[in-house]
Design a protein around this nucleic acid. Structure first.
Lengths: 191, 191
DNA sequence: AAACATAAAGAACAGTTTGTTCTGTATCAA
DNA sequence: TTGATACAGAACAAACTGTTCTTTATGTTT
């Protein structure tokens, strides 16, 4: 990809996230974004069809960044933390969110966080399935798979949201533990 | 309140909900609303400061309607259904939602349902507290009250959302049961 | 029924936003 | 160096916003 394109794309993302930390998505105009990013009007529309697409692309980038970072732990680390346990992936996710690289939490905690939340939840699905539904016994299940998967994803996102609303007072470990205790009893419950 | 005001308010609400069932909130302009409602521009702004306030007012109206309808059951009915059980209130809520008076589900299932969802969740709080936290023993609690309350509210909203995404195939009773089974094990879990 | 109050309609408005099209310039890759 | 292309900047029509004004219709009160 042309360096010029990269620079422009990044400038727009930066300007956009800066604005998102100060006001709602709906209240941000394309005009403001291009002013903030110091980029020509034509250039913006050459990159993004609409403001909605910009947000979508940003979500995609941020989510990939979170996942890559949270997953990319060396083997030594994985042993130390006993990363074969189902919770550890979520702990890593939380730990990475806590660092707030790239101001991801700005986006998640902003008032109009819905689009990013939805994106987050949808993409969590795959992860949840691989963590909790490996060799899962459908016979024993008390709830439909689909309902359960949705419930777990939703609970994770809501847990993060609650944490943010509390100014992240709890440690990553404590939060991961809350999440685990909200989910595990449901998985192990008898009919 | 003046009858003219009532009529206008209702016309705007109707036009707005009609539009909401066809397109996203962001993509609806005030112009379209007043065209659909067949109401003058000045009139709209005399009633609602902005489009956002309109949505807020609509949410308020709809939520009050749901709660009033779901709660307003005669004593006989309450005995028949054993309404002292904590789940029954939620069953009533679901049953009422199922009827889809006033096209509430249109709003809940539309792509941009976030504002209503948030309103719904926030206002559910009080109900959840009175149902699940009456004489609740904080000593035995495995999770912070606040986290738990949030978790229950979120789970209810997510349950409804899941149901809608599945075209409401399950009966109200089955759905209330899913909800219950997602929540109860967490409440009764040991430390 | 008459009188008063006020809600609504309609037109006109300045200001803004949107998305497009054009031309000229700067930057990149080969 | 050359050819391609990304960018800036200006200008544009179309639409939307929120306000102000006047006129008309409708409610409420006595």
């Amino acid at each position: 990809m042309d360096r010029r394109q990269q620079k422009t794309r990044q400038a727009i993302f930066n300007g956009f996230t800066t604005l998102l930390s100060t006001k709602n998505y709906n209240q941000i105009s394309v005009q403001e974004i291009i002013d903030e990013a110091n980029v020509g009007r034509t250039t913006f529309y050459a990159h993004f069809e609409t403001k909605d697409y910009l947000l979508k692309e940003l979500c995609k980038d941020l989510f990939n960044h979170i996942i890559d970072s949270a997953m990319g732990h060396p083997e030594a680390h994985r042993h130390y933390w006993d990363c074969t346990a189902p919770d550890s992936v979520f702990l890593h996710l939380i730990q990475h969110l806590q660092k707030n690289d790239k101001h991801i939490l700005n986006l998640l905690s902003s008032e109009n966080n819905d689009i990013f939340r939805r994106y987050f939840k949808e993409n969590l699905r795959e992860l949840v399935i691989s963590e909790y539904f490996h060799g899962y016994d459908a016979e024993k299940a008390t709830l439909p798979d689909d309902y359960l998967i949705n419930h777990i994803c939703a609970t994770f996102v809501e847990t993060i949201d609650w944490w943010l609303s509390k100014n992240m007072e709890e440690s990553a470990e404590v939060l991961a533990n809350y999440f685990s205790r909200a989910i595990e009893p449901v998985l192990t419950a008898d009919k």
